[in-house]
Design a protein around this nucleic acid. Structure first.
Lengths: 183, 183
DNA sequence: AAATTTGTAACTATAATGGTTACAAAAAGG
DNA sequence: CCTTTTTGTAACCATTATAGTTACAAATTT
């Protein structure tokens, strides 16, 4: 199981920046919205900067902002920036070379992995940060007046991660076709 | 990154059984081919048995064998049997409810995740264990005479896992279109 | 009854991720 | 030039998933 939320956080961060326009955001502000520590944000920001998706600046008027038009940045760009690796991994230690199955299973599984990964990529390359923000707007509009909370050190909610079965149920009850994301 | 090879091992195990026909395989033999510990194999076998993909039996003539026709078992069945979870995860702690982005990003990302996961599933459900074994045969044929090594306690190779970039390069040099796997 | 094999618990190791503190370096403004 | 602010980054700890290992009870065959 991919127990890592780096991709989700990265998309969140970029969406925040797209929402906020040109004004650079401080890692502190972003961390507030994401509900995590500023250093965690800066680590992800660093990878996004290396991929040319954001630009950051130190100093009193510093912060980070998008490097490109959010309608040009796809979720595949984000996925690749984080080097998330493939959907599954091959054998840890190479299988037996003396077994007719073991000697070739890695090659076959490697082909399967490439096919799976490219299916993932085909989905992600068709969704932009702009699409995400657009999907956000209908529901966030009511709060649009107060962009980002800046109050004191509120700690994490300490709530469990949202599980897949719940997600499926929630999406189904909203009646979500797969084409809802774009347009 | 999905640093877990359980799916690869499970497919390996089922392919071994398909290769070997009706005869039950011992976890020791399977572990030999996979190059790991028998208990690791039994743990995975347990999940596959719970999903109805294999049957096991204790005792001196015991072992495990396929429960169904290998042309009926798809890689999606295997993937689901192992409850691999999704390709990525959502936020660990829920984002700020006071931020217009935070308040709805989970819903949007949940939709993306469902779309990505179903793309993965559409690939996996079209590849059967039989397809994998068929892909195996051309290369394993030379070794077909000695099915599974049974020699003494040889230890692991301790070699690094095969990385994605190498895989892509290798597949490209073999000229692999995505349709090679079936038929 | 003896031998064999699975089922399973218990423990350890390893690696990825995430959270936290601390501080140097860069930038802005007086 | 000094102060303030913020990023960049190192260092450390906690948590979790996976994997490897040993050990042994339960089941099955002979």
């Amino acid at each position: 199981m991919s127990t890592n939320s780096r991709f989700a956080v990265a998309v969140h961060v970029l969406s925040l920046m797209a929402w906020s326009g040109e004004e650079p955001l401080k890692s502190e502000q972003v961390a507030e919205s994401v509900n995590t520590n500023p250093v965690v944000i800066r680590r992800i920001l660093k990878e996004l900067a290396e991929a040319g998706l954001v630009v950051s600046q130190t100093g009193s008027l510093g912060g980070s902002r998008l490097a490109n038009d959010p309608s040009k940045t796809t979720l595949l760009d984000v996925y690749q920036a984080l080097e998330c690796g493939g959907v599954f991994s091959l054998h840890r230690a190479p299988p037996s070379r003396d077994c007719p199955v073991g000697v070739n299973i890695e090659t076959v599984l490697g082909d399967v992995l490439l096919e799976v990964d490219s299916a993932v990529e085909r989905v992600l390359e068709n969704i932009t940060i702009n699409d995400v923000v657009r999907r956000l707007k209908p529901c966030g509009a009511a709060l649009a007046s107060k962009p980002i909370e800046k109050n004191g050190k509120r700690k994490h909610y300490d709530q469990k991660q949202i599980a897949l079965p719940e997600l499926r149920a929630a999406a189904k009850s909203r009646g979500n076709g797969s084409s809802e994301l774009r347009k």
